[in-house]
Write a protein that binds this DNA or RNA. Structure first.
Lengths: 239, 239
DNA sequence: TCTTGTCAAGCGAGCGTTCGCTCGATAACT
DNA sequence: AGTTATCGAGCGAACGCTCGCTTGACAAGA
């Protein structure tokens, strides 16, 4: 989980600053970083409350304490602001899920469990970013919508690859639905999409992770291994 | 599936006409029904393309061929239009899922399979309505958002009830995650939320239904029954 | 030490546009 | 002729975005 430590809001804003240096007119890095953090925090808060489209730049100005003109020192259009946040989220997914620790990849089942856990913990850590990026993606301008879709497909491909490998190595039972990798995604997404519901019901991240892992493994592991697992509850991942 | 037959756009619009007779100023029923159908079809088409908020009433006027003033003979505000469609969707869910045929409810496993199949077929039949109602629900005004949330919880309660019954009757294995009923929902929703993706990949409704049923049953049935099922592929639902 | 010049940074009234919505005029029936 | 249905120009408000102006920190010149 050490990668998740690097994903604090400050680091993400620093990365945004570098990536979009051409449209950000503020020169002094410490001033720019401090104010960008305020702006992004306000943008996430407002657009999580009522959606990105419905968030007016006047709302954002009031919430962040930065004037209308001041905002445009950090982006050249509202769509660019969308793009900046979106890029940071999709980059985080690729960085974190695409670089599993070496010891995890030795066993495909361990790898599968790691992907599930890490994805949920990542979306937990960056909950407002993910809500922002994917909940209303279909209403984005074409280019930004494609970024969101590509990111989703990339995530699915990580699951497809590890499922395919487990199948090839004979670690799964004879019949596993070919839609399994696709269907893992909605299970993971529900954690940040319906976050309020789970909070209200007192479901912890750990409960949720374990539950998704159980459902996924129940759908693909050989039956004798399922039996062994349910006897030694909370047993190790690797055989 | 005979209930689904009743859910044609014409019937839904007729129902809307009755339910909102107080705000619809057009008197002649046949004229009103015909025009309402055109308006609703256009509204669903446009808001599925770019979201309800982003759909302006001028867009709707142009798409439907009804003037701005003409539209206001059928609703007194844009929010009322939202409410009219939303109410029809949630009502359809309640009517269809809440009234299973008697022969289905005898066995809880059969009932569970029926709920999964019927929910997916319902959302297939009314795909644009469901996208409209739930994809951007969190950006709705408070009252309409609550309607959408209540409808979701009602759906979940149907699954909770049948899962609880199966558990009580000893039809499930010893350990089943308590989050199972909650997690069925995102699996069902993915069918209309990511409809374009499944279409592109050539996944049929039947494939999808079977896949969800497999995953859900694998998570709760006793292991020996799972073994029996996988031998006699496409076996009957009841033992 | 004090004055003055400079310029990045920030401000907010105001631009053109589009929004949801209204209403008096007109058209189409009975 | 009288009722019902439809129209679309027009309203005030709010939108994304701009631009002339103010501010404040800092360094050079006296």
């Amino acid at each position: 989980m050490q990668e998740l430590k690097r994903l604090k809001r400050e680091d993400l804003c620093r990365s945004m600053l570098e990536r979009h240096a051409d449209v950000i007119s503020v020169q002094k890095p410490d001033v720019a970083l401090k104010k960008l953090k305020v702006i992004i925090s306000a943008a996430l808060k407002l657009s999580n409350r009522k959606g990105f489209q419905a968030m007016s730049l006047r709302d954002l100005s009031k919430e962040s304490g930065v004037s209308m003109g001041g905002l445009y020192a950090y982006f050249d259009s509202k769509t660019t602001l969308l793009n900046m946040i979106l890029t940071e989220v999709t980059d985080a997914v690729e960085t974190v899920l695409g670089n599993p620790p070496e010891e995890v990849t030795r066993d495909p089942i361990t790898h599968l469990n790691w992907l599930i856990e890490t994805h949920i913990r990542l979306t937990e850590e960056m909950q407002s970013w993910f809500s922002f990026a994917f909940m209303e993606a279909k209403n984005f301008p074409a280019k930004e919508r494609d970024i969101a879709i590509d990111s989703e497909e990339l995530t699915e491909s990580y699951f497809s690859a590890v499922v395919e490998r487990a199948r090839a190595e004979g670690r799964f039972r004879a019949h596993v639905t070919p839609l399994l990798p696709t269907m893992i995604k909605p299970l993971l997404q529900d954690w940040y999409v319906k976050r309020a519901k789970y909070k209200r019901r007192g479901v912890s991240v750990e409960d949720y992770i374990r539950s998704v892992q159980e459902i996924v493994l129940a759908a693909c592991l050989p039956l004798d291994q399922l039996a062994a697992r349910s006897e030694g509850e909370s047993g190790p991942d690797s055989p």
